[in-house]
Amino acid sequence: MRKIVFYGAISLDGFLADEQDNLQWLFDTDLAGVSTYEAFDKDVDTVVMGRVTYEETKKILGDENLFPGKEKIIFSRTEKEELEEGRYVSGDTVTILEELQKQAGDSIWIVGGGGLFTELVMADMIDEFWIQIAPVLLGKGKRLFEEGKYRKRLEFVETTQMGELTELHFRKITANKSNTR
């Protein structure tokens, strides 16, 4: 079964985007030096995100191809048309991701969408978390971890410094590991 992973950045105060869904604060962050992205990217062939995350990222990238060579699944309650670089889906997030997991392929990357992410965390479907923390305070916006019923302990893997970002890598504790503790 394919892994579901989250790889993304948040502000120091826990926001994915500001109040206007803007992500420019992230693109203004110095990312010089070590990066885990290239190694992470090699193990991913499907990218999943919400419509707002997709639209905001496209605004910043302009004509540049978003996640080239990867299948793009965009959750939307309103959009239905076909995309050149992906497809819109709607429906139960957990059911759709369970079906994707059964298909042949590499890891499934949850890029963004706080609500989408929260549903998957509550269903205990995120296998690994790579969270980069930027030295930015936004004060308000869209949180990565929305309120929900998902109290869990994760296994620490490593910390990596990437320019101004500090990356925390965790993975879900499997039943075998939690039984031995």
Rank of each mutant, 00 (worst) to 15 (best):
Q24Y: 05
F129R: 10
T166K: 05
F117I: 14
Q20H: 15
E79F: 03
Q101D: 05
E82Q: 09
L61E: 13
G115C: 02
V5Y: 06
V48G: 03
S35T: 15
R151I: 14
Q24V: 11
G163P: 03
L31S: 14
N179T: 12
M162F: 05
V48M: 08
Q161S: 15
V5E: 12
L154E: 06
T159F: 04
K142C: 11
R181E: 15
Y54T: 01
L100D: 05
L83N: 03
D28C: 06
V47I: 09
Y54F: 04
G112F: 00
V44S: 02
F170Y: 13
I108K: 00
F40T: 06
P135G: 10
V44A: 03
V47S: 04
I110C: 04
Y150R: 13
I131Q: 02
D28I: 07
A175I: 07
R87N: 06
A17L: 02
T46W: 00
E56I: 04
G141T: 05
F156K: 08
N176S: 15
K3L: 10
K58H: 06
I108S: 05
I126H: 00
Q20N: 11
Q103Y: 07
N65S: 15
G141Q: 02
T36R: 08
T180V: 15
I108V: 04
K72W: 00
E98P: 06
I73T: 00
E71Q: 11
G115K: 02
A32R: 10
L61S: 13
Q24N: 09
K172Q: 11
L168C: 01
T57I: 11
K59Y: 01
R151L: 13
R151Y: 13
E155N: 13
F15S: 11
K42V: 13
R2K: 10
D28P: 01
E158Q: 08
I96T: 09
V121F: 03
W25F: 06
S11Q: 04
V136W: 05
L100Y: 02
L12N: 07
R153Y: 12
L168Y: 01
E164A: 14
K140C: 11
F117M: 10
K142S: 15
K102C: 13
K58V: 14
P135C: 12
P68S: 12
Q101M: 07
G50M: 02
L16W: 04
G105S: 09
D63C: 07
V89M: 13
M162W: 01
Y88E: 05
E82F: 01
V121G: 03
Q161C: 13
